[in-house]
Simulated scan of single mutants.
Amino acid sequence: MKFKRFFAVFKARNIEFFRDKSSLSWNLLFPVLLLVGFSFIFSGDGRSAYKIGVVQLTSAKLGHTTDKHDFSKNTRYVDYIQYDSVDEAKSKLSNHTIDMVVEPLTLRYWVNKESSKSYLVEKIFSTELRGYTRLQTSDKAIRYVDWVLPGILGMNMMFSCLFGVGYVIVRYRKNAVLKRLKATPLSALEFVSAQLLSRLFIVLFLSAIVYSGCNLLFDFYMLGSYFDLFVIGMLGAFCLISLGLLVASRSKSEELIGGLLNLTSWPMMMLSGVWFSLEGAPPALKAFADFLPLTHLVAGARKVLTEGATLADISYHVSCLVVMSAIFLSLGAYFFSWNTER
């Protein structure tokens, strides 16, 4: 592998992207517009269901039960999630994962004053909660825009990684650029590595600009380390780029690659915790979401931002991204074709 040839492709790819003003503008403006919109609508993500955490550990330890929360059985469109710890449930409430916490034995409930859903749930169950002591989460308030930030940035990274790599390679293959490159001393490893690192640089550079600019407007909640956030972002972007390379490894049709990339991106956009939490979702759905790279990128970044997690705390997400990257990259290199013929 010759560094000079690698760097020439790397430089050319960067220049090609930055000269495309429409693509550059879209990558910069799209996440900003989404953040502005969500800051105004707060938590209006269109779902009708609410989530209430019910803590039962205390009553179990004391050897008796209570029926104080039986009202939940008669309420539609509300999910009831069992927790064994008040601290765990309150942490979920602070991070907008659930909308209210109820501990029936001690007649206490908690709300998140920064959540419109928490306010509505309290109003809905105002009659049933008579006699309960009302409490609020004591941690620093996390706004919905703080919670949704990792999802929006992750989604923007996903589209940039998948479409930025997939379409480019298919266009090169369709226009016989790859066929001509095959006749040069450039190896497949050099070409793929240059494409991968070029897109990684572009994605991280633009994401940093978007985050920094929006942070001046919204003053985002940040408990963790920016270094840890950068690492999980880099691993997530690398994994998504590798997936884009795999999807485009043999396709010769721009229409086909568009469908394949949409098929790849839409499940991640809906099931990776971008817009709403999967807390209380069916186990099969949560298991499927665990196989999606964006799930681990968003979850890891969200823990760093809102919970102050370190890389050790999110080691599961880091490990999943590393393993997925290795699998996608290996398969992509194995199936990669220079020519338009299959």
Score class of each variant (00 low, 15 high):
M270L: 15
F238W: 07
G166A: 06
S253P: 07
H296F: 04
L178H: 08
K252Y: 11
R171I: 05
L204N: 08
L292R: 01
V168S: 13
R250F: 11
I202E: 08
L181H: 11
T184E: 11
M222Q: 12
E190A: 12
A194Q: 01
L206G: 03
A287L: 14
S251V: 11
V168F: 06
A299Q: 09
A281S: 15
A176D: 14
R199D: 00
G259I: 09
L216C: 10
F191Q: 00
L229V: 07
F291S: 11
V298M: 02
M268Y: 03
F191R: 01
S225P: 05
A194M: 06
V203F: 08
L285Y: 08
V247W: 00
L229I: 07
F191Y: 15
A183P: 06
G236H: 03
D228M: 04
L181C: 08
C214W: 02
L246D: 03
G233E: 06
F227D: 02
V210T: 13
M269Q: 10
L162D: 02
I209W: 13
L271H: 06
P283D: 10
T295G: 06
R250A: 10
V203L: 11
G244R: 00
Y211T: 13
L162N: 03
S272L: 07
I209Q: 09
L223D: 12
L162H: 02
C239F: 01
D219M: 09
I209K: 09
A299W: 04
F163A: 04
S225Y: 07
G258K: 04
M269W: 10
L206H: 07
A188V: 14
L204A: 05
F220A: 12
A208L: 13
